[in-house]
């Protein structure tokens, strides 16, 4: 029961309170770049969630059973980025071979994820926070869902922005960032909720 509570807290806090995009600023590039249309935002969000889960499942054992066991902890950065890049390539190949429909939906987003800082960020953060394997997987799921949530919410907002008449200096990126700032402000309201959820 205690473990279940911990997992719920990790999940909720990574979706709402410590949202990767809106409060930790990881994965801002796709957040600003691919959030123009709802279907693209959803596709990117799902792809990131899947890659985060698979990357965590691969990097956690490697960190504890290979790098730490051999005293190579300092190679973490290089090893993780290579694992993520390889995994992404492999997932793309497998999808193209076995599920062309899914590849059409998600495949286009996969190459971009290699250097998405949210994926590297979540794998490194899981190690830094000292999570167990299950906690790491839940935290990655939460971060992915949080990313998806932020993307979907923001794509809705952006379609409204596109239709409005914006002063010239703010057109494009400036108004997008300011709108993101307001969503982030709204997410700040979740602070403190999760810690007291079982109190």
């Amino acid at each position: 029961m205690e473990m279940f509570k911990t997992l719920i807290i990790i999940l909720l806090s990574s979706v709402l309170v410590d949202n990767y995009v809106l409060s930790r600023f990881l994965g801002i590039c796709p957040f600003l770049g691919v959030s123009k249309k709802l279907d693209q935002a959803t596709g990117m969000g799902v792809a990131v969630t899947v890659v985060m889960l698979i990357a965590t499942a691969a990097t956690w054992p490697i960190q504890y059973y290979v790098l730490d066991a051999l005293g190579l902890g300092y190679l973490q950065n290089i090893v993780f980025i290579l694992i993520i890049a390889t995994l992404v390539q492999m997932i793309e190949l497998l999808l193209r071979r076995f599920s062309p429909a899914l590849h059409k939906g998600l495949g286009v987003y996969l190459p971009l994820i290699t250097t998405n800082c949210a994926v590297l960020g979540v794998t490194i953060n899981n190690i830094l926070d000292g999570y167990t394997f299950i906690e790491s997987m839940v935290s990655s799921l939460g971060c992915g869902l949080g990313f998806l949530l932020a993307m979907v919410l923001f794509s809705g907002l952006r379609s409204r922005i596109d239709e409005s008449n914006i002063p010239a200096p703010f057109r494009g990126l400036a108004v997008t960032l300011i709108a993101a700032s307001f969503i982030s402000l709204a997410f700040m309201g979740f602070g403190g909720i999760v810690e007291n959820i079982f109190a």
């Binding site: 600023f25 200096p169 990126l173 400036a174 982030s184 700040m188």
Partner: peptide
């Protein structure tokens, strides 16, 4: 206080980009 938090970063960045546009006339 909110400027030091996450939303402040996005807001200041947005305003700076708009300012650059004004200064350089686009």
């Amino acid at each position: 206080a909110f400027l030091t938090k996450a939303p402040g970063g996005l807001l200041v960045y947005g305003l700076l980009i708009a300012l650059i546009y004004v200064v350089t006339k686009g």
